[in-house]
């Protein structure tokens, strides 16, 4: 699953030529991997990282997403400083975590907290694929579980934005069990009639797709997002045939009845607000 994500990225990677590298200060310009057009990064950012030419949804960091969707200054983060303990003493794992901590503004692959959307209080979890491919280990499982429990106790909706290559290999079976842990928590939220909205973003695969991502009362996805259980390469090797290009895209899932809606990033806030409003879950304040 993780592999697929790598290879997919590789296929679309935009490697600037030597001249381009010399001409443009780093990070000023960006090329869309989908339509190949080059534009200012600022222009992309202003457009919520959606390509102004072809609508391709570029990656959005967890904090950017929160900033775009939720009311200004309404976000309070939970468990911000929770980090992995390398429970299996897996070789090189701590170094990899440290590297990702330094290169991103994150301590782990998910950011959780409470925030208001158009004045409506919610518990939110936003995964970020820049950190270990958004993979789920003990910390991701625990933070999401805490967020679900907080939502349940405060009678407020829980919204998650998933972006994950699946389980975190370096934490072995403990990662696998986080699928169980988060699902058991969701069952409690469900039993208490709590609202859960899952928004799948690129990519949502493996153990994350096979647990909380698929368990929303409403399952939405961003256009073009890769969503699936097994990786494309593994499936192609297993069934010995080539898969269609749109296999495991959000649109493919919608067509096969696996999603409620594919929602454009520009429509996301409106769609979520509509659902929240319809449920009019005021809730106790946390």
């Amino acid at each position: 699953m993780l592999r697929d994500f790598f290879s997919k990225k590789k296929r679309y990677a935009s490697i600037p030529s030597q001249e381009a590298k010399q001409d443009v200060p780093e990070g000023l310009m960006q090329k869309c991997p989908n339509c190949q057009k080059i534009f200012y990064r600022k222009e992309l950012n202003r457009n919520m990282n959606v390509c102004p030419h072809c609508d391709h949804h570029h990656r959005l960091s967890a904090y950017e997403r929160i900033q775009h969707l939720f009311d200004e200054d309404s976000f309070t983060e939970w468990d911000k400083h929770m980090i992995s303990n390398n429970p299996l003493h897996f070789p090189d794992y701590e170094e990899k975590l440290e590297k990702d901590r330094l290169k991103s503004d994150l301590n782990e692959a998910v950011v959780t907290g409470k925030a208001k959307m158009n004045g409506m209080e919610t518990a939110v979890a936003v995964m970020d694929s820049r950190f270990r491919m958004g993979s789920m280990g003990s910390v991701v499982g625990e933070k999401i579980t805490n967020a679900i429990e907080n939502a349940r106790k405060a009678h407020i909706p829980f919204i998650i934005f998933t972006a994950s290559g699946g389980a975190r290999m370096q934490e072995g079976v403990l990662s696998l069990m986080q699928m169980g842990k988060t699902s058991v928590a969701l069952q409690r939220l469900h039993a208490d009639k709590g609202l859960f909205i899952s928004v799948m973003t690129h990519p949502t695969t493996g153990g994350v797709s096979a647990s909380f991502a698929s368990l929303g009362d409403y399952n939405f996805a961003e256009p073009g997002a890769l969503i699936g259980f097994a990786g494309r390469r593994i499936i192609e090797q297993t069934i010995r045939e080539k898969l269609p290009d749109d296999f495991q895209t959000a649109e493919f899932l919608l067509e096969h009845g696996q999603l409620d809606r594919v929602v454009h990033r520009h429509e996301m806030k409106k769609t979520l607000s509509t659902v929240l409003d319809l449920h009019s879950t005021g809730g106790d304040s946390l």
């Binding site: 096979a210 991502a213 368990l215 699936g228 259980f229 097994a230 499936i235 296999f247």
Partner: peptide
């Protein structure tokens, strides 16, 4: 779980979840 085309189409992830 079987990593196959039909399995994905019918919602392998959802079924397990």
């Amino acid at each position: 779980a079987y990593p196959g085309k039909a399995a994905e189409e019918r919602g392998q992830s959802e079924a397990i979840a």
